[in-house]
Design a protein around this nucleic acid. Structure first.
Length: 503
RNA sequence: UCCCCGAUAGCUCAAUAGGUAGAGCGAGCGGCUGUUAACCGCUAGGUCGUAGGUUCGAGCCCUACUCGGGGAGCCA
């Protein structure tokens, strides 16, 4: 192998002309008698490499023809612009060397099932879609760090083994820490509050663990969360910070990952709309909407649209089944069969949504003030808006002990959730923190928590307490929303779900 | 915890009324000078998830279990 004249595929436009070498893996190949098309991937992109008989030794030509998918190889040749090729450039090969031939690579360029791909996650990361998601995830994380670093925030790493309960006691992962029971962090927030009193503006970024019995497309037991915490800030200030963060993420992805967004079929115009100001609703207003005529109309319209789609799809399926019965060439039969499988899958999903629609309607209509918003309620609210929506001032009973009671209305706390658009639901939860010693102590006791464990946390209210607050943004949910991926498990390289850990 | 669906070749799926298992992809071989999930021909590849039951006969019907997917609830 030579690293001389080595180039990466994403910089081919700067290397048109002279002989260069690509190091990568064989993504796919097509061969005919005298010409071969090798699609090579090198981690930065795909490049079609043309091997013509007579322009390379016959022996090499034959060897390349037999090279299996995902064989590692180095190819040398000259780059030229070519519209017909992936990425707009291609290589005319003059020499090549197999680094390590691969045989029988399990993931073919054809459809596979979820379980199969999950069990082969270590290989699945190489495929186009997963690769593109990983690139977007990288940008999202970089945009987050950039935003805070550029705005005077100090990174503070909070512990993963913790003694405190930040969210819900029932969702703790307990670990045996040399005989002492500790648990994995659910949030760095309480530690971060103490750091905010040292630095003013801080953030932490790390994995978070929640043992919730939630088997849904929106939940992971291990996920990544960024949490800023700011001294001397009120609820309005937090909303500005959150919309600044989220819109800067959206804009960065738009500039850095346009081709990935296209590969993934993301809704780019929707992403372009993600600019401040976002919509703002109070919890009470949200409940009114859910119980009111707007929601009834919205759900009825959705029901009609779904019924229409269902009819169209059933019509198409019937048509294809009729065609299938006729005299057709084998490849036509196959094409029809493949389309049928697709359509049946989509139809099943539409049927589920039709089935859920009245349930969601009932849940929303019967919603009583005081409950937390359910998944379907969040979906309805976010579907009714064309960009993210803040919902503020939730009932105190439904929320965590550390949230600051609103002094104008003691029934609610000064908190907010940010609901992403298009039904993706909550991506941020945050609040102003209770800064009054007595009130905080009372809430800790009311929740049945042990005040001794929170001694140090209460200290923060003893020694120079200030109004402060922060929020947590879930990385995977943000990525899922940005790219329009329905299942969160695709947005982390090695997902951990409630009932499933593959590799 | 509950509800629904599924399990057939390495992968994705077929199998009409219960009558002895098929296709495509992948693999192997051959053909083709511009292919785009290429195409064409040939070959190999199966204890139909497991256990039991009904039947002359079970991939198909019944029961239990295991595993997977989707949804509900609960929650970020």
């Amino acid at each position: 192998m030579t690293t001389e004249n080595a180039v990466y595929i994403n910089e081919l436009k700067d290397h048109v002309g002279p002989e260069v070498t690509l190091h990568g893996w064989l993504y796919n190949s097509r061969a005919s008698g005298k010409i071969q098309f090798l699609i090579v991937r090198d981690g930065t992109g795909l490049c079609q490499c043309i091997v013509e008989k007579g322009k390379v030794p016959d022996e090499l030509f034959e060897q390349l023809k037999r090279l299996g998918q995902e064989s590692s190889l180095s190819v040398t040749g000259t780059i030229r612009a070519e519209e017909r090729s992936v990425g707009g450039y291609e290589m005319a090969v003059t020499n090549a060397q197999a680094v390590a031939p691969a045989e029988g690579y399990p993931i073919t360029p054809k459809p596979h099932g979820v379980e199969f791909l999950m069990r082969h996650r270590h290989l699945h990361l190489r495929s186009q879609r997963q690769w593109a998601i990983g690139k977007v995830r990288h940008t999202v994380i970089d945009a987050i760090r950039r935003y805070f670093n550029d705005n005077g925030f100090v990174l503070v790493d909070t512990p993963i083994f913790t003694t405190i309960v930040g969210e819900d006691q029932t969702s703790l992962f307990e670990v045996d820490y040399f005989g002492r029971p500790l648990h994995l962090t659910q949030t760095g927030q309480l530690y971060l509050e103490s750091a905010a009193m040292a630095y003013g503006r801080v953030y932490c970024f790390g994995p978070t663990f929640r043992a919730e019995k939630s088997k849904t497309r929106r939940h992971l037991t291990e996920f990544w969360m960024v949490e800023p915490e700011v001294a001397f800030i009120d609820l309005d200030g937090l909303l500005l910070l959150a919309e600044g963060l989220v819109s800067s993420i959206a804009q960065r992805v738009l500039t850095d990952n346009r081709s990935e967004l296209q590969t993934l079929g993301a809704d780019i115009p929707a992403l372009e709309r993600v600019v401040p100001p976002f919509h703002r609703l109070t919890y009470t207003e949200a409940v009114e909407i859910l119980k009111g005529p707007k929601t009834r109309e919205f759900l009825a319209r959705e029901r009609d649209e779904l019924q229409q789609q269902k009819q169209q799809m059933e019509g198409r399926i019937a048509e294809l089944e009729k065609q299938q019965a006729g005299q057709l060439k084998q490849w036509q039969q196959d094409k029809i069969a493949a389309e049928l499988i697709d359509l049946r899958g989509e139809l099943e999903e539409i049927n589920t949504r039709i089935e859920n629609n009245p349930k969601h309607d009932q849940l929303a209509a019967e919603f009583r003030w005081g409950k937390d918003l359910g998944g379907s309620d969040e979906t309805i609210i976010s579907m009714m808006h064309d960009k993210p929506v803040f919902v503020t001032h939730y009932p105190r009973e439904a929320k965590a002990f550390y949230m600051k009671t609103d002094r104008q209305n003691e029934q609610v706390v000064q908190n907010f959730d940010l609901l992403a658009s298009a039904g993706f639901g909550e991506v941020i939860g945050g609040s102003v923190r209770e800064d009054d010693y007595d009130r905080l102590l009372a809430r800790i006791k009311a929740e049945g928590l042990n005040p001794e464990t929170y001694d140090w946390y209460l200290d923060l209210r003893k020694y120079g307490s200030v109004p402060h607050g922060g929020f947590g943004l879930g990385v995977e949910r943000t990525v899922a929303w940005v790219i329009g991926e329905r299942h969160i498990r695709q947005c982390i390289p090695f997902p951990r779900m409630m009932d499933k850990v593959y590799i």
